[in-house]
Design a protein around this nucleic acid. Structure first.
Lengths: 124, 124
DNA sequence: ATATTGTGTATGTACGATATATACAATTGG
DNA sequence: CCAATTGTATATATCGTACATACACAATAT
């Protein structure tokens, strides 16, 4: 499990955490029932408050990515392969809609867009 | 000149305005030295505060898209064709970097990404 | 000249979201 | 049972967004 925070990002901390854990779970990098580190530990390592970590955890639980056992810890929800793929597709679809709208709004053609992706996707 | 606000969007109002005007300027839909409507008028039509419009206008000026003559109004900055194209590319590049990082983070391959763009770009 | 109208600007306020420290409650495990 | 460990709740501080209102400057008609 790995979390990297960006201080320059305009994204809230709890959301950065949420997204990164989301990604790791749908990719299967975190196995089912894997026990996440205590929020205190995460907070200490990232040098942020416990509450902020909890907020990310709450959102993860709300979306069905993890489950909580009070006094014991938080665990990765057991999702089958196709469920994980489905959740990933949900995340992609939701974001893609807004993103493409932006580029369309700037007047980019589909062809231009494809060329940009082709060019920069693997070379950031 | 046209501005459409979304109440459901999680984007700030002033930013929605900024982006839409940006787009219209780099696309050349607003001619150089075109006089924008008074912020009071825009505010009234959109049923928002003058301050919010001003905030969008400020950002547009900061980015060199418009210039202000106090007492007279705000005007579209005179940009040559290649300058406009350059600014559009700047906007695209800045956003594309973050967007692609997100999809990469979810484990999408370049091929998958291309297929999604191919499929949904013109059919939102 | 100067009053009036139109323009952008500044001040002060309110609210919600973000993030924090600290204290609390539930559960585990020796 | 008790101490340690876990997640949870309360109260507070700060920042960003948005607002209403009053101000300052420019243009123009009188």
């Amino acid at each position: 499990m790995q979390i990297v925070l960006s201080n320059t990002s305009d994204q809230p901390i709890y959301q950065q955490i949420y997204e990164q854990l989301c990604a790791q779970i749908v990719k299967g990098e975190l196995r089912a029932d894997f026990c996440l580190p205590p929020i205190r530990t995460v907070a200490k390592e990232l040098r942020i408050s416990v509450i902020t970590v909890k907020k990310a955890w709450e959102e993860l639980e709300r979306q069905g990515f993890i489950y909580t056992i009070t006094g014991k810890g938080c665990f990765v929800a057991p999702l089958h392969l196709h469920e994980r793929a489905g959740k990933r597709d949900d995340l992609v679809a939701e974001r893609l809609q807004k993103d493409l709208a932006y580029y369309r709004g700037l007047g980019l053609s589909r062809q231009e867009m494809l060329e940009l992706v082709e060019k920069y996707y693997d070379h950031p």
